[in-house]
Amino acid sequence: MIKVLFFASLRERLDEESLEMEAEGLADLGVVLMRLRERGGIWSEVFAADQTVMMALNQEMTGADAAVKDGDEVAFFPPVTGG
């Protein structure tokens, strides 16, 4: 299993803080994102190809080509606005 977290406007729009996914068949973060998009409804809007979504793997910012394995913590969020 992998843990998937959502933050800020993504969390609010999805009305979901986190979920778990079977790691099998999830080659990289791009595939995870595609699976989320396939859930339909608001999920397909939030993860539409024209949306700017940032991602992290095990608490490090990365890109869609980052490989995913069992036990990983994945996060999706909008561009950051701290400081």
Binding site: F7, A8, S9, A56, M61, A75, F77, P78, P79, V80, T81, G82, G83
Partner: peptide, 22 residues
Amino acid sequence: LKTRAPFWKKESTSEGSRWVDA
């Protein structure tokens, strides 16, 4: 910090609340 640290601001105004854009 501004571009990498995972913080997000949400403002409350008289029009309601809104997430701040990067």
